[in-house]
Design a binder for these strands. Structure first.
Length: 96
DNA sequence: TATTTGACAGCTT
DNA sequence: CAAGCTGCCAAAT
């Protein structure tokens, strides 16, 4: 059901460990979403209680409106970004 | 009921 | 290396 999917996405996002980051595509793949757009939509609606700051774009650059907050929160967790670009190669998280 | 928009990704030009 | 186009799903108007 779509409700399951919605919850699955939240679970995956909450399962990302601090100091690590993941892309929308990864979350979508792990959660079973057909498209990463669903992940973004869920975060925009319920992300206020989730570590949405650990979710980045495929390019390692967070969304345009929140990028400032994103980088700030990531920095607090030890994730250093080159300008707006985070080193996915180092911080990208993969499910167990 | 149809159209537009949106925390995206991947390929082509 | 950068910009543009297409595919995807769901909610809002």
């Amino acid at each position: 059901m779509d409700e399951q999917l919605h919850e699955r996405i939240r679970e995956v996002v909450a399962d990302v460990p601090p100091g690590k980051v993941a892309t929308y595509g990864d979350i979508a793949a792990i959660a079973g979403a057909s498209t990463p757009r669903l992940v973004g939509r869920v975060l925009s609606e319920d992300g206020n209680d989730l570590p949405w700051h650990r979710i980045l774009r495929a390019s390692g650059i967070p969304a345009p409106h929140i990028r400032h907050r994103q980088l700030e929160l990531l920095r607090a967790e030890g994730v250093l970004a080159d300008g707006d670009k985070v080193s996915l190669r180092k911080y990208r998280w993969h499910a167990s």
